[in-house]
Design a protein around this nucleic acid. Structure first.
Lengths: 350, 350
DNA sequence: CTGAAAGCGCTAACAG
DNA sequence: CTGTTAGCGCTTTCAG
């Protein structure tokens, strides 16, 4: 083995194929098995042999073929993330956090938005499964249609639900106290003398919408107030749609004196809608939004919101998922984070 | 073949392993080759045999193993996307558009943000390559460090750069007319009588920052004005950092009368900074931002911006990439979209 | 400590 | 029209 002349690294100016383990093994004068053992640090490998392998791998620029490894192991170092809408800052933030944490553990994130469409969600789930992802983090778009999740978790792919929960699926979940947060918001509005409080939320199919609406009802009821269905508006969660819904809400005979919105996009939409109608916040209408957002403190007036501990959700989800991937079979965890009412300037006493 | 009784779909209540081609073939009483031919629609397959295969695949819930297919073909139906920051609405929007278009062609999107860090960008590139992605869409974080891209495109993985371009790499690019857009903005400010115009941009390493700054200089110079380096501020592209930079800019002896910001996050940061200092837009300070954003029309005053045709970038990138993946070897395309100055209310004559 | 060999699931020549 | 066969690149028994 003496006298192995190290070839000068080939001037890589031509399309060089990717380097395989076989080539590394050959260059190091060992078998593929030994090379693999050295590279993956398991089993017994002689010091010298190992050294030669490392040197060769390094010199050749060996990178390892994840696909081949995956075929053997059964899965790819991938995690799927299916948010409702990647353009919603809430999900964008979580995607970012997931990405950072997973990358630290050598996993890549496959992001595909369901666009709040159950059929698309199913297809996405299938296509990610076909890719042999190790696990999945999902914000299910429907609280009711859950078959696709059940079959997945039954086949053993770890699944964790964030922000929303789909009834009956046995998996971890990370949620916030939607009812409590909404209740607190409405309580606050009521304590400021408001009686006609509008609710602007997305479709009832969506878990968070349900819970936040339920908190709204609870608060009203517990104050002995009637629920007026005309004050409850449903719209898609985009600024545009919420503007329209807001305008409809405030075009009624008996105008609300306050409005509670269910997420930051809708809060912004309500703001635009209100201003379009010449209604000033908080002089004419008071507003509380669920979910804090960058601009909330910048707009005039600053917006009072129910804040979620958003920075905790992604990291926790990643952590739990990684444990599951490593084989943790303990009972599903269900976490609920508390929310916090942040009083700023968008509510005035009536 | 008459009388094939369709067994009732098995009650899938137990952890069933994923179905392989072999099982389908067995169930259909053909060889794996025939089953594959039927399922993938190539070569000759008898009608009857094909039917049996389809039926079996369907019944068993065959999904095909992308990983195994990939090992054979050499790549996975994946495309990597490396934006500078997925939380920037500009990139989030593009990610969304890419996702939609790629999905139509049965490709999945792997998103990993470089966080404007060259080292991280390199690692990301490596890890995506190891995953055998078919192609990559990148907003390179540095206009100068390009080795990693060169070696990649040399090895034949299609690469397309969006928003930014890294000198010397032979690949397609989709950019906007940054210089022209910036020039138009500054021209407009000058035509409103402004002479002390501040520039708030991100690091010079970033391509768009360079070009937009260059447009700024050009405009000033072409109007015979001196360039005052104290009016040029650099900051990271987050609302927070831009607030600070703006405050610094306007804490100088000779305050600027106008400010031009390089992206929507910085525009929002500038707005916050200005208001923090008690400076009103446009009464005390005029403002033009590069990149339009949802809230621009909602804030009071509405913000004058240089808009980019953002909805075209993602789809075009996806389209070009897909062609490359299919083997298009024609000369690299370099597209530059025009920008458009949208005059709203954030600029006042001096 | 190391090598030979099997095989993950799939596709594509190549014979029949 | 269909089956046989040979790998893709890697890991992991199982013998040495």
């Amino acid at each position: 083995m003496a006298g192995v002349v190290l070839p000068v690294t080939k001037d890589s100016t031509l399309p060089r194929k990717t380097v395989t383990l076989k080539e590394v093994a050959a260059a190091a004068n060992v078998s593929r098995a030994t090379a693999a053992r050295a590279l993956n640090r398991y089993g017994y490998v002689g010091d010298e042999a190992a050294l030669r392998v490392f040197e060769a791998a390094d010199r050749l620029g060996y990178r390892g073929n994840r696909v081949a490894q995956a075929l053997r192991r059964g899965d790819l170092p991938l995690v799927g993330f299916i948010p409702g809408d990647i353009q919603n800052p809430f999900f964008a933030r979580i995607a970012h956090d997931l990405d950072v944490h997973l990358r630290q553990h050598r996993h890549n994130l496959l992001i595909a938005s369901s666009e709040e469409d159950v059929e698309q969600e199913k297809e996405l789930l299938d296509s990610l499964r076909a890719l042999s992802v190790r696990g999945m983090i999902v914000a299910p778009t429907s609280a009711a249609e859950t078959k696709h999740f059940e079959s997945m978790s039954r086949e053993g792919t770890p699944l964790i639900m964030i922000d929303r929960y789909a009834e009956g699926v046995s998996c971890d979940s990370i949620l916030v106290d939607n009812e409590g947060g909404a209740r607190e918001a409405i309580d606050y509005l009521i304590s400021n003398g408001h009686r006609r409080i509008a609710f602007l939320g997305d479709e009832a199919r969506i878990f968070t919408a349900q819970e936040r609406l339920s908190g709204y009802r609870q608060s009203l009821t517990s104050h002995g107030m009637e629920i007026d269905e005309r004050l409850i508006a449903v719209s898609k969660s985009t600024i545009k749609h919420s503007v329209d819904a807001t305008i409809r809400l405030f075009s009624q005979e008996q105008k609300p004196t306050a409005i509670f919105t269910v997420d930051s996009l809708m809060t912004q939409g309500a703001l635009v809608g209100l201003r379009t109608m010449g209604l000033s916040v908080p002089r004419d209408v008071s507003l509380v939004g669920f979910d804090d957002f960058d601009l909330a403190t910048f707009i005039d007036p600053q917006i009072t919101v129910v804040a979620q501990p958003i920075s905790k959700i992604g990291p926790l989800a990643a952590e739990i998922l990684l444990k599951r991937i490593e084989g943790d079979m303990s009972e599903p965890q269900h976490r609920r984070f508390a929310t916090k009412l942040i009083v700023r300037g968008s509510v005035a006493p009536i």
